[in-house]
């Protein structure tokens, strides 16, 4: 663990390909938040994708160049953050495994070293930067979905909730059956669309039962799934990434739930 509490830290941002392309407000909020906390954020322009979709769909050879790129791009940095439990989980649990499966021990060792310095946002804030009250203000009724890879691969535990509880104005309500998968699962949502939809229906039922305005999580992908379902239902519930809530401050124009649901 890095003991750099209280220091200005230079943090390399891995935006993730999904958020970069479809949800740019999420990495922007990550930048806003970390800069507000006094840290320097850099965006290494050579970055692309962690390769998780390829790996989880069986295309490990196609993921190899992506893994190599991730390692090459972020190896120079001391602290790396991604606003995605799933991508950080893949980096930590799959990169070295895939490299070894293809007999590239050197890449595996490098990948392990970089993965050890790659943090999901709530981990970075609580474990590395030692902060729980990030000075955010968000006057809305919010429920938190803990996303499977944050919960089980990364074991982030209650870190996101500890951060959310310190947000002023927030009305944080527990999500029933929170630890059950929303049914996204990457290409699972397409290959097994019916089962995925059945899981999504139950997750939406739980979200709606909370009467929250906003469902938040640490993964844009799961939020895209839940938000896509809620939007189709015209349910009137928005999905907003954890980073966006933590970046919000009174009068900063980010106080309202995002205008566009995912």
């Amino acid at each position: 663990m890095h003991s750099i509490v209280g220091d200005v830290t230079r943090i390399a941002l891995f935006a993730t390909c999904l958020a970069d392309t479809l949800f740019p407000d999420v990495p922007r909020a990550t930048v806003t938040l970390l800069e507000r906390l006094g840290h320097e954020v850099v965006f290494p322009a050579e970055q692309t994708c962690c390769g998780q979709m390829h790996i989880n769909t069986g295309y490990q050879r196609a993921a190899l160049p992506l893994i190599r790129r991730y390692v090459d791009t972020f190896e120079p940095y001391e602290v790396i953050v991604a606003p995605s439990g799933s991508c950080v989980g893949s980096i930590g649990h799959q990169h070295a495994m895939v490299a070894r499966r293809h007999d590239d021990e050197e890449l595996a060792r490098r990948a392990e070293a970089v993965a050890a310095r790659t943090y999901e946002l709530s981990q970075l804030l609580t474990d590395v930067l030692g902060v729980e009250d990030v000075g955010a203000h968000y006057p809305h009724r919010v429920t938190y979905h803990p996303t499977c890879h944050s919960l089980r691969l990364l074991a982030v535990g209650d870190r996101p909730l500890r951060l959310l509880r310190r947000v002023s104005g927030i009305d944080l309500v527990p999500l029933p059956d929170a630890d059950v998968c929303c049914g996204f699962g990457g290409t699972f949502a397409v290959k097994n669309a019916d089962t995925s939809t059945a899981m999504l229906a139950d997750k939406m039922r739980s979200v709606l039962a909370t009467r929250a305005e906003v469902c938040t999580a640490g993964d844009s992908s799961c939020l895209m799934h839940i938000g896509g379902g809620l939007s189709r239902l015209r349910a009137g519930v928005k999905t907003v990434h954890l980073a966006e809530i933590l970046a919000s401050t009174a009068g900063a124009g980010q106080g309202a739930p995002a205008a566009v649901s995912r």
Binding site: A19, D20, T21, F23, V26, A193, H225, G228, V260
Partner: peptide
């Protein structure tokens, strides 16, 4: 995907 879910529209600007 879109049988049961809306899909996000790509925003005007990437990150």
């Amino acid at each position: 995907w879109t049988r049961a879910r809306d899909a996000p529209v790509p925003p005007p600007q990437t990150f």
